[in-house]
């Protein structure tokens, strides 16, 4: 007997809503040694965690920009279904943070336009900014990127997670990128724990519906309670 009134072919096949996440990572010379190794391991675990979560796998679109000597796009926005392997980072050069942030914001604008044209729904984008030092690229680029980031945050168009690594991280400049919540100082080189939290949070957001206030588990990541 015909069990249902319709069959699966009668339904529309809309793409899942996306959560764009951009990792903007310091790979300058000062990250040489344990920090860059731990960062590589942390990002690899992040990719593994997202891949193993069915919802996050089809929802999270991850891009990676590094700043070590120059700003470099390591991975453009894509789900891990299409881009499964985490990039490998090497420490080298100075800290052009402003250039990297501007590159990330440009990529984000381009991706949002692509979503709109293709009829893909998306959630508020996230940028994770990690550094162990102070920016030494163009001052004008830095100021411009801070202004752009703050404007988007104030208009509720972006969430940023600024993370300082080690004692020499310039927490003041990180704070200038984040008008609504204080930057976090990573305890030791605990990248793994942070990226595990990040993948869980992406999964949570990708399942949220209108009116949901996504409560992020703030234990250990003080000051970040809700999006």
């Amino acid at each position: 007997m015909n069990r249902n009134l319709l069959c699966i072919e009668d339904l529309e096949n809309n793409p899942s809503s996306r959560v764009p996440v951009c990792l903007v990572l310091d790979t300058s010379g000062s990250m040489e040694g344990d920090p860059i190794n731990e960062l590589n391991e942390g990002v690899r675990l992040f990719y593994d965690a997202v891949r193993s979560d069915e919802t996050a796998l089809y929802a999270a679109e991850i891009s990676v920009v590094t700043f070590g000597g120059f700003a470099s796009r390591q991975a453009d926005f894509s789900t891990l279904e299409h881009q499964p392997e985490a990039p490998q980072f090497y420490a080298n050069g100075g800290t052009p943070m402003g250039e990297a942030m501007n590159m990330a914001l440009d990529m984000l604008e381009k991706r949002k336009n692509e979503y709109k044209v293709s009829g893909v729904d998306y959630y508020q984008p996230w940028i994770v900014l990690m550094t162990d030092g102070m920016p030494n690229g163009s001052q004008a680029e830095l100021s411009r990127s801070i202004q752009r980031t703050c404007d988007m945050i104030n208009e509720r168009k972006l969430t940023i997670f600024p993370i300082g690594i080690g004692e020499d991280a310039d927490m003041d400049v990180l704070a200038r990128f984040s008008p609504k919540r204080s930057p976090l100082k990573l305890q030791g080189l605990n990248f793994k724990e942070f990226f595990a939290w990040l993948s869980k949070s992406v999964s949570k957001v990708s399942q949220s519906t209108p009116g949901d206030k996504v409560q992020l588990d703030a234990d250990g990541i003080k000051g970040w309670a809700e999006l």
Binding site: L11, E12, N14, P15, S118, G119, V120, D121
Partner: peptide, 9 residues
């Protein structure tokens, strides 16, 4: 999700 084509509206 099942009955409204988001691209074509």
């Amino acid at each position: 999700t099942s009955f409204y084509n988001k691209r074509n509206k």
